[in-house]
Amino acid sequence: MTDRHTPEKDSAEFAAEAGSLWRITFAPATWAGHFLLCYTLFATGCAKGWPVGTVRHGLIGMSVLALAVIALIGWRAYAQWSPRSTGRIVNPRGDAEDRHHFLGHAGFLLAVISFIGVVFVTLPLLLLEGCR
């Protein structure tokens, strides 16, 4: 098998896996964004005397949204990993197919972790109220 390698091999690879790389980073990024939003909105709201109840409800809404987004990403990544259809849970081979499944697996697990992370951060929103 001969094929031409260009110095832009990198761009070609990134183009091929753009979807998976996007999924891998997006779930934790959603967690981080949600976390920062909760923290900054509450801190600013309390400092500047905004109606805290509204902020709280808004943020709970944001949590639901974040969870939905992460669940979607996780589901797509699971499809890419496809442990059921290929019957293989681990992907240790050095070929393009295993690399593709591996990135799916990676995206899926990160989505799970991010999901739990968002749930944890939401708990104080549900359990505590007010600025004290």
Binding site: F42, A43, V121, L123, L128
Partner: peptide, 20 residues
């Protein structure tokens, strides 16, 4: 002396990191 809910967020993140 930050608002206790802010501390709650961080307490939550601290517990979450135990999982990985």
């Amino acid at each position: 002396g930050l608002p206790s809910i802010s501390l709650g967020f961080f307490s939550a993140a601290s517990e979450a990191v135990v999982i990985p």
